[in-house]
Amino acid sequence: MDDSGEIRGTAFNTVVDELYPKLEEGKVYYISKARVNLAKKKFSNLNNDYELGFERNTEVEECHEVTNVPTVKYNFVPLDALGELNKDALCDVIGIVKEASEVTQVTSAKHNRQIPKRELTLVDRSGFSVRMTLWGKQAEQYNESETTPVIAFKGVKVGDFGGRSLSMFSSSTMQVNPDIAECFLLRGWYDSSGAEQTFKAHSISNMGGSSSFGFNRADMHSLEEVKQAGYGMPDKPEQFSARATIMHIRSENISYPACPTSGCNKKVIQIPDGWRCEKCNQVFPAPEHRYIMSMAVADYSGQAWLQGFNEVGVEVFGMTANELLEIRDRDIAEYNAIMHKANCNTFNFSCRAKQDTYQDTTRIRYGISRMLPIDYKEEATILRDLLYSQWAR
């Protein structure tokens, strides 16, 4: 990092052997002849579109005359907002250590060796707590004698065990009682009132009954960035978040007749005396229609086709598929008006990119995992908070 920001640098194989002894955390270096690459956002939480590749001819020289060394920059996520991040996302957090466990040893099946492990319980002013797992040297070197320190973590991984948890890994860093404004605010709050407060944990129940992939504001991408990054290739599902506006909805085959049995949702077949579900081996007088959504969405960078199922259709139209089809059969003009009104609405999308093959043609399909309407009060609050954040300074 320097005064302008941060960038990730990566080395492999023999370059690691050459450069590792030269580099030390907290020191300043001149770096030349490094390759500039587009950043792989999946593996980095830095706010930079590029990264450096250290190669055999890359030169690293320590700078001994340094003044005004820049401090580490954080993009802190409040603990109550961890439920909005998807599993394995990287984030920065700061919290008071409410509890700290003893060091235990965990046997790694992959490496067949013992790894030290320690668990901290972090709390902050949001009223939530979360478990943070330290591994290896970080677990062993943690200072148990200091009670309730403030610790800032950078680049920790989000887990979904029991709702939400955090863990450090090789590239994560931690600073105890850092000299930053957020630390002083947190210390003052805890000493004045926070120590007596009761905190909520991120259980599965208070996350809406599921720990599945949700909208990740910290990792939003434009539609063109998703395409350029090759999400879903090759044959590997990838998840991403985006904000886009509905431009067109395919009105043909917008739903299918489904089994009305709770939890089945299989397509039923019409027979002379009703609708038959092969899975349930039952005949019903009428099906429960469920949406199959295919819609073109756009943002400032371009357009993409997204696919979704029943929950997406209910969110878009504000009614069930049965209700929409009843309107279509009764008044086609009203149906067309509803379809038209659904366009030009903006949503936050959580999507899954996956490669598939149809009629010998390979393509990338973008499936909607979740979609949320824009909460303008929330968006304004986030922009306000951004203006008062460390980033804005």
Rank of each mutant, 00 (worst) to 15 (best):
D3H: 15
F12N: 09
V15R: 12
L19C: 12
E25A: 15
E25T: 13
G26K: 11
Y29T: 07
Y30F: 15
S32K: 14
R35S: 14
S44I: 06
N47Q: 15
D49E: 06
E51V: 02
L52T: 03
G53F: 03
E55H: 05
E59F: 12
E59Q: 12
V69Y: 13
F76D: 14
V77Y: 06
P78Q: 12
L79S: 06
A81H: 13
L85H: 08
N86K: 14
K87F: 13
V93M: 04
V93D: 04
I96T: 08
K98H: 05
E99C: 06
E102S: 06
Q105W: 01
S108K: 04
N112F: 00
R113Y: 02
I115K: 08
P116C: 02
P116F: 01
K117M: 13
R118P: 13
T121V: 08
V123A: 04
D124T: 09
R125H: 09
G127Q: 01
G127R: 07
F128T: 00
F128S: 08
S129Y: 03
Q138C: 08
A139R: 03
A139F: 08
E140V: 09
V150G: 02
G155P: 00
G155M: 03
V158M: 01
G162A: 00
S171Q: 02
T173W: 01
V176Y: 13
I180N: 14
A181E: 15
E182D: 10
G188S: 15
W189R: 00
W189T: 00
D191K: 09
S192Q: 07
S193K: 12
G194V: 00
A195L: 09
Q197T: 11
F199K: 01
I204T: 06
M207P: 00
S210N: 06
S211R: 03
G214A: 08
F215W: 02
M220T: 10
M220P: 00
S222A: 13
L223W: 12
E225W: 09
K227R: 12
A229H: 10
G230D: 00
D235W: 14
F240C: 08
I246L: 04
M247F: 11
R250F: 15
R250S: 15
I254E: 07
S262C: 10
K266C: 05
V268I: 12
G274C: 07
C280V: 05
C280L: 11
V283G: 08
V283W: 04
I292S: 12
M295T: 10
M295K: 03
A296G: 09
A304H: 05
W305N: 13
L306D: 07
L306F: 05
G313V: 00
V316T: 03
V316D: 11
T320S: 06
E326M: 07
R328Y: 08
R328L: 04
D329W: 01
I332W: 03
A333C: 08
A337S: 10
H340I: 07
N343M: 14
N343C: 15
C344V: 07
F347W: 04
F347I: 07
F349D: 05
S350Q: 05
K354T: 10
D356E: 11
D356Q: 08
Y358Q: 03
Q359P: 00
T362P: 03
R363F: 03
R363V: 08
I364H: 02
Y366L: 15
R370A: 07
M371L: 10
P373D: 01
D375Y: 02
Y376H: 01
Y376D: 01
E378R: 05
T381E: 00
Y388T: 10
Q390N: 07
Q390T: 09
